[in-house]
Design a protein around this nucleic acid. Structure first.
Lengths: 349, 349
DNA sequence: GTGAAAGCGCTAACAT
DNA sequence: ATGTTAGCGCTTTCAC
């Protein structure tokens, strides 16, 4: 069934409305047109089912109204939330997201060429792997980039994250305040800045309290990785009495290992995550976790990028927003817990 | 920090390489160019960091290499999986996804104008709400559309889904085979075709077995909606002995209600979902569910759309792939369960 | 195999 | 307020 539809152009509308192409363009871009003409144009457009071509428009305005979003994977539940919120927020500003789901591929060039070929107005890098390199290339090509939940080790790329070290330190103090003696940390991938920083913040705080360094091992940012690390520790000699996982996704894996051994989280052993993904509150998980200030991070990311686009400059600001520790049942409770208006419990010292 | 970067164009490359624009174009599009020239062009391009503009290219070729993807929300864990897999599969074919996260907004026009303005090569509608209307408009505008996991009531729009009725019927037979007497169904939203069809398949099968219609109530496709429906039923008079939820997201909500009342799923009451989302296998959920043949559905969707694009026609095929019932612990077991090579258990009669 | 020229659909000066 | 003109960066006949 061949239905070769000839899309109407601005000229078609102009002809039908008895005006020039420019008038049509103005009518659709908020330019100056008499009420009289505007009405005729809109009517003609409606009749022809005309919609201005974004492609052609982009060519002249040099604005695509598209933002590239790179994420590594969507099976860590934190990222779908990020994608959805970024999409909503950018949509409100008139931008759509072009999605790049990377999988830590070794060769960045193809995806980079693609990314830069689309004439994106900006890029958000929520992928952890190689974000810095990609950011550098984009910036060099004149495309504003903001790294999300990931900070550039060289400190040159703009980024928004939560204060990983402060957050992890807060977790450490909470664990100490609730009387834990042998906390251990399940980390993510080596290159990941957030993993590194969270571990560092945690260890630093332990040291400050005169405690020994915590045992740490990588769960590779996966459920099963974290499960195995936790299981091995629990089954091994002198198991930890608390597990701090650098994200919720792994904390849920650790939680499963705990249940798997017939132990009860929050009583026999404590598990604390980082992110406060939306499912962390499920009673079956009931995860105590450091909540990233997601709304604020989204807002900051969008603001940074839009400002850069508007001013035709490269963003450089690095923001680290403060999270809060949300208390649920997976970790032994410490004194000083506050119940908020929402019914949520938090802890701060 | 003003860094107004002048992007190099094909002409720049042509000049540097000592050839014409056309030659540069050919070099980048697989046209005929002498090895000699091609080498010089590529070298010049590398020097200038030139990448062809997709925007300009789209204007002449009338191909954007972008596929629009509309989804309602990403908090039903099924959709992030769909998004990721579609993204991967389309990327392999050289297409990127432009994301539209809709929220069942009343007025479709703005988003439609946008969708059609981007010059997308095709559209996948994985959103349930109003998918048919959007599909009709796209088709009229000459943009191929495939509805995913959602079938057009009028039977005109192309679509890929699993065989909802057969799947639900299989669930019904399993529940009967495992001796349940009072199954009930938690449905989604009224307009949703998959909800309607799954309920229908379930009821039909019950009738065929000479049983009374199952009680049914809407959980609005939300966790809390399903939780409340399940809780009310469990606390009410003559509670059901099995809960069939038309998707896993709600099944997990129902599971929580069961635990909430101190009951054990699979022993005191059975819970069965639909989708087999990746987290359904978590031991804490351990959900028996009808697995949608996701890989096949993705493959079919991509194939349908790419074929339509290549042939410049509108797709019309409606495919309904067969799912399978994955047996886990949330429902009482029936005789005849098969253990597959993967270790997964399934049931078929 | 290569270049010249036209044109994709739009916006943005510049006139009027 | 409106029309004319000249591109935006590419691909694509069409000659050569």
């Amino acid at each position: 069934m061949h239905s070769v539809i000839e899309k109407p152009t601005g000229s078609d509308v102009a002809r039908l409305a008895g005006v020039s192409k420019s008038a049509v363009s103005r009518a659709f871009t908020g330019g100056v047109v008499s009420e009289e003409a505007r009405k005729r144009i809109l009517e003609a457009a409606r009749l022809l089912k005309y919609r201005p071509s974004n492609t052609a428009r982009s060519l002249t305005t040099r604005q695509s109204r598209m933002i590239g979003l790179a994420v590594t994977s969507l099976d860590n539940q934190f990222y779908p939330e990020v994608v959805e919120k970024l999409s909503d927020r950018f949509a409100r500003a008139g931008y759509r997201l072009l999605l790049f789901v990377t999988h830590g591929e070794a060769d960045l060039d193809p995806v980079l060429n693609e990314l830069l070929g689309y004439g994106l107005d900006g890029v958000v890098l929520a992928s952890s792997s190689m974000a810095s390199q990609v950011a550098a290339e984009c910036r060099e090509a004149g495309v504003p980039v903001v790294m999300f939940n990931n900070v550039d080790p060289d400190g040159v790329q703009a980024g928004v994250s939560s204060d990983d070290e402060a957050g992890a330190a807060l977790v450490a103090r909470y664990l100490l305040a609730s009387g834990h003696e042998r906390p251990a940390v399940i980390t993510g991938l080596g290159q990941s800045s957030s993993s590194v920083r969270r571990l560092r913040g945690f260890q630093y705080e332990l040291a400050r309290a005169g405690r020994a360094r915590a045992r740490a091992s990588s769960g590779d940012y996966t459920f099963s990785g974290a499960f195995e690390v936790a299981r091995a520790w629990i089954e091994g000699p002198s198991p930890p009495d608390a597990l701090f996982c650098v994200n919720d996704h792994m904390a849920i894996g650790a939680l499963h290992a705990v249940h798997h051994r017939g132990l009860t989280p929050g009583r026999d052993i404590s598990v604390i995550g980082f992110d406060n993904v939306s499912i962390a509150h499920w009673p079956l998980l009931d995860l105590t976790t450091l909540a990233q200030p997601l709304e604020g991070m989204i807002e900051a990311t969008v603001a940074l990028l839009l400002k850069a686009i508007a001013s035709n400059t490269m963003p450089t600001t690095q923001e680290a927003l403060t999270g809060k520790l949300v208390i649920r049942g997976s970790a032994r409770r410490a004194p000083g817990i506050t119940r908020e208006a929402s019914g949520e419990e938090t802890w701060a010292d």
